[in-house]
Amino acid sequence: MNEPRPSSQSARRHDAPSGAEAAASPGEKLAALRLAERHEVEDLLRALFECEHHGHAASDARLAGLTGASRASVLKTLARASAAGLAENAEDGWQLTPAGRDIAVLIMRAHRLIETQLARESSVPPSRWHEVAHAHEHGLTRDEVNRLADRLDNPRFDPHGDPIPTREGRIPEPEGQPLLSWRLEETGVIAHLEDEPPSLFAHLVATGLFAGMRFRVAERRPDASVLLVEGRSITLPAELAAMVRVRPLLESETPPPAAAIRLSDLPRGAAADVVTLLPGCIGGERSRLLDLGFVPGSRLEHALQSPFNGPAAFRVRGTLIALRREQAEQVLVVPAAAGA
């Protein structure tokens, strides 16, 4: 079990300050594991951290649910983690040691940063962000994670709306409440979209919901909730609604104007004023739209519609800009009164 690891990567990564020269530090013990085992331990540490963060007791059954491994294998991995001094058994379940928490936070930071990078810079579809990030999160050293954060301009939240732990390992208290318990007709903000299981998450993404969007619940039925999300009505089946957490508006946030619609719903020939670009429009696409003049307050006019319901062209500040439907959906506008 203690065979030397072929790669020196993790040895570099877990360079936790170790005073004793003779006794191996927890990081070094972890680095000495086989690659697959190390990944299992790291996944487990992260699951323990989630329990701790949300104030749940970390029973082996809950850990099995979170990591997707069998209970037997969770117990085996727990034994390895505790042998390495990364986790310990307390009275109400398992706990992280400081060294274990350090690694768990790093893994979470890497995962959420990679998802942010995928959302901003790649053409990987949202339903695969989690999978890709999960495959890469174990391979980055602490320095590489920090460099990635610098390059992304130290983002605070990942595309699911989750906070990204800071360099120092700090993360704010969990916020929000389940969508299902939100009061009717009160405006709130989508705080978090659960990305597991992936098949349901794909459906959730397809509805057009995105963390940071403002909403109110227009109607609640036993099987579904009807939401009004940034000028569009979305019917969310109960199993998808259960994956959504929401929070109240911050002081700096206002509800969307009552007349607001998506630019893609603007009839041909009509004019409208831009309210805002929605949160789902990120990275290069957002700056491109801003560059082209899709700025709050800009007057737009729907000028042309291409064949087969393809892109539409809008007149913005004296130029004609063609956008695909999916992009026009990311612009919230208020139609101008006729003759205005």
Partner: peptide
């Protein structure tokens, strides 16, 4: 493999 990227094209006069 990948999502179709965005399309923002200026139609010059």
């Amino acid at each position: 493999r990948g999502e179709a990227s965005t399309f923002s094209l200026e139609l010059p006069p």
